[in-house]
């Protein structure tokens, strides 16, 4: 009785007509304040490199060149030849993943070499990120791959060759983003 009466009052006031689903509200009532960006502007922001290598910049380097960069800018945290301490080990550990003490490194664990370039460029060295040239990033990536026996010491690593590096644990991952209840 009360509910009926209240509905009638709301209808009389025209309030019922104002109730629209929340999704429609967000679609129709947002202020649209985004500023358009050109491809040139976006190039400076888009630093992500997928496994295909799309977006890798020009330039290149070899492991031999990369060792110089590594010893100066990486070894203090990652150890000479990527043995680790205090930061993560970058080399070794192949064949340990199913043991009681697995060692997960770029060589034993990482599925894509492109991720190495992406991460070094965006975040390393930890105290001075975005400071390496693209050639240095290629070269130091080549060196870490070389330490893991993935590329030769003088192999040119660049936008064409990096995505082709054959990572030992490429097929070691199972995609499972279903809700847990559905597993």
């Amino acid at each position: 009785m009360f509910t009926l009466k209240r509905t009638a009052i709301f209808a009389a006031l025209g309030l019922v007509a104002c109730v629209t689903p929340p999704q429609q509200q967000s679609a129709t009532r947002a202020p649209a304040l985004g500023v358009p960006m050109s491809a040139d502007e976006l190039a400076a922001w888009d630093i992500s490199i997928p496994p295909s290598g799309a977006g890798l910049p020009a330039g290149g380097g070899t492991a031999r060149q990369g060792q110089t960069v590594y010893d100066q800018k990486c070894a203090a945290c990652h150890g000479l030849k990527g043995v680790g301490n205090p930061a993560d080990a970058l080399a070794g550990g192949k064949g340990t993943l199913d043991s009681k003490t697995p060692l997960r490194t770029v060589g034993s664990y990482w599925p894509y070499a492109t991720t190495l370039f992406d991460y070094v460029r965006r975040a390393m060295p930890i105290t001075n990120p975005l400071s390496l040239t693209n050639d240095e990033v290629y070269a130091v990536s080549a060196y870490v791959l070389y330490l893991n026996g993935i590329v030769a010491e003088d192999a040119p690593i660049n936008a064409q060759t990096l995505p082709l590096a054959k990572m030992p644990n490429r097929d070691g991952f199972i995609d499972d983003w279903r809700p847990r209840a559905a597993r």
């Binding site: 997928p50 993943l97 199913d98 043991s99 697995p102 664990y109 492109t114 991720t115 991460y119 991952f173």
Partner: peptide, 18 residues
Amino acid sequence: YTKDETSKYTDLLPDGRA
């Protein structure tokens, strides 16, 4: 396939897959 969805935040299984 960023560093934090491959080398980290992946859950290692007894058989060595993750």
